[in-house]
Design a binder for these strands. Structure first.
Lengths: 152, 152
DNA sequence: CCTGCATGTTGGCCTGACCAACGTTGACTA
DNA sequence: TAGTCAACGTTGGTCAGGCCAACATGCAGG
């Protein structure tokens, strides 16, 4: 059995790298997401989630919270504003800033995306039981926390 | 203390997603790698590692082992062949195929890359102790294995 | 006042993942 | 034997993400 040795494994030098594993897991997630959602949905979800949790934010703050460049935030907001899922207006207290807020349509879109996103997590983690999922999540969280901006 | 609350955390909806964590971890790895290595070094490393571990391979086999498209393998090999780190010639037994082998220069390049790669892993995993690193590695391996081509 | 910094915008670059088409070659079958 | 089908490698292209550079605006400091 396993006649032709389905293995076809990647080389050990790669399997040993967490950075490589992370990269592969990341594109797996991207693929699964792409099967369910239109293009750009990932960025939309991130921005909408930030607005929902933190209320009104400036574009720069959004970028900082999500780890995105100002440039890219700008693009996402253009899309969202075009769909009236987000409201963008100059901050009277600081006219450099734009105050971005969630609209009702935006909130609804967020919940839609959340459902698909949950389904994607389930597919991605299908091979792990509940305890393992929790462990993986915690370890990744710890890893990411250790690379935060480092507040001196 | 923590007066201005350095937090600036991403929203919970994102923190809860393993796919998002994987994506962030992946770009972290990419960033750390970019600090030490020239562009394209990641793909080079993967291809060289496959050749070192499995000997002579066809381009299609390389792609299958690494999860790369034939197209992209072609490009990487052009680069490597241009530097004489790899030898590419038609397979006499099957003239559709190219037999790709590692040269001495390629082997040497691989070891160089390995050193930098190891250093990157250390930086990436700096926040985790040995046991946690091992756990994370195992869980990611299990996750990836569960998404293999599925040999029926 | 003026220097410096933050903000948002535009435009561009590069990587990685992917798809489509083509000519070549081998294998399988009618 | 001929004809069909599949695999291989190549070229050329798309798309999202992450990044950098430059610019105009506005704020805050000396």
């Amino acid at each position: 059995m396993t006649d032709t040795d389905d293995a076809l494994q990647p080389p050990a030098r790669l399997r040993g790298l967490v950075s490589w594993q992370a990269s592969k897991a990341s594109t797996l997630g991207a693929r699964l997401t792409a099967r369910r959602l239109p293009l750009g949905a990932r960025a939309d979800f991130a921005v909408l989630a930030a607005l929902e949790e933190y209320g009104a934010l400036s574009q720069a703050d959004i970028g900082r919270r999500l780890g995105l460049d100002r440039n890219d935030v700008s693009g996402v907001l253009n899309r969202l504003e075009g769909r009236h899922q987000v409201d963008r207006q100059a901050d009277p207290a600081n006219r450099r800033r734009n105050v971005v807020t969630l609209t009702a349509a935006g909130r609804q879109h967020l919940e839609e995306l959340q459902q698909h996103t949950d389904a994607v997590q389930d597919e991605l983690l299908a091979g792990l039981d509940a305890a393992e999922r929790q462990q993986l999540h915690s370890l990744l969280a710890k890893l990411l926390d250790s690379h935060k901006p480092q507040p001196a």
